[in-house]
Each structure stands twice: as structure tokens, then as C-alpha cells.
């Protein structure tokens, strides 16, 4: 049994220690907002926040995040009030198929919540780690413009 802290709750996980966090979230905990897409940490669809940093969960063994605070897309904002990044995504109607968007949002949240006053280019260079096959980038840029 491995204990993980996800969205401020503790979970006892019955999975071997090398299991990637993504599959534990999806198959064990029914938290399906984090998506499988490349399996090699190259597209960002599976990103979650690990101690505030956006990290691809598809290659992240659960053994490596035992002491970490994990936040998934389901843990952002509250039922009454979404996270400002989610609100910006809604305002700009960003998603098309939507499959990559939870990962995009997690990356943007990791930048937003750190208050580092990054320049626009620096924000885009971090967002470059997430792929969107529908090409929603122009609207992501507009959503980011309203946030940073």
C-alpha cells in the first residue's frame, strides 16, 4: 500500500511502486480528467501539479510522489468558483475536442499560481510543452493575455 495526497485527500493505493501516477489516477481513483496521449512525457495531456509544478504523470512512478502534494484538474477551484485559469479558458472558448485542455490548464495554473511575473515569451515557452492537435493555440494565447 502506498499513500498519496491528491486534491487535499489521502488515498491508500494498492499498486506496485513503479506504476505511473496517471494510471493510478484514472483506473484506481476514477479521476479521469488527466489524459493518456503519448506515454513518454512529450505532449502534456497527462499533466498534474506536484507541489505546484506541472509534471507529466504518464511516466511518474507513484513511489516518487509519496510525500508530495498532488493536484489534478479535478482539484482546481471549487464547485462554486472555478480557478481563474479555467475561467479564462471558458471566456475565450478555448477547447475544441478538449482532450489536451486539462493538461494545458494545469501548465497555465502552475505559472499563474507562482506569481513570478514572467514575460509573455517566457509564459509561451513553458506552454510549449503542451500539444494541441486541434490548434487552439490562438485562443490559449488570448486566455493567457487576460491572465498574465
Amino acid at each position: 500500500m502506498i499513500t498519496l495526497t491528491i486534491n487535499n485527500e489521502k488515498y491508500q493505493i494498492d499498486a506496485s511502486s513503479e506504476t505511473p501516477l496517471l494510471w493510478v489516477l484514472r483506473d484506481h481513483l476514477n479521476l479521469k480528467g488527466s489524459k493518456y496521449s503519448c506515454g513518454i512525457a512529450a505532449c502534456g495531456a497527462c499533466k498534474v501539479l506536484v507541489d505546484g509544478n506541472a509534471v507529466p504523470s504518464c511516466v511518474l512512478p507513484i513511489a516518487s510522489v509519496i510525500d508530495a502534494k498532488i493536484t489534478t484538474i479535478e482539484g482546481l477551484g471549487t464547485a462554486e468558483e472555478l480557478h481563474p485559469v479555467q475561467k479564462a479558458w471558458i471566456k475565450e472558448n478555448v477547447p475544441q475536442c478538449g482532450y489536451c485542455q486539462t493538461g494545458q490548464i494545469i501548465t497555465a495554473v502552475s505559472i499563474y499560481d507562482k506569481h513570478d511575473n514572467l514575460k509573455k515569451d517566457e509564459v509561451l515557452s513553458i506552454m510549449n510543452s503542451n500539444i494541441c492537435r486541434c490548434g487552439t493555440y490562438d485562443r490559449i494565447k488570448k486566455a493567457l493575455d487576460g491572465l498574465f
Binding site: 484514472r26 479535478e74 472555478l82 479558458w89 478538449g98 486539462t102
Partner: peptide, 27 residues
């Protein structure tokens, strides 16, 4: 007009094929 699925998509609740399930299913 914005997508009716917008809120579900940005909160991770939207259901894709990968997320669908049936009782007793295996992978």
C-alpha cells in the same frame, strides 16, 4: 455561441472514449 461542453472540458469531467466504463469491464 460557446460549446455546451466547455465547463466539463475545463474541469476534467468531459467523457471521452478512454474514460467510458461498463460494470465488469477489463482492460
Amino acid at each position: 455561441q460557446k460549446s455546451p461542453d466547455l465547463r466539463d472540458m475545463v474541469t476534467g469531467k468531459a467523457i471521452y472514449g478512454f474514460d467510458a466504463s461498463l460494470e465488469g469491464m477489463k482492460y
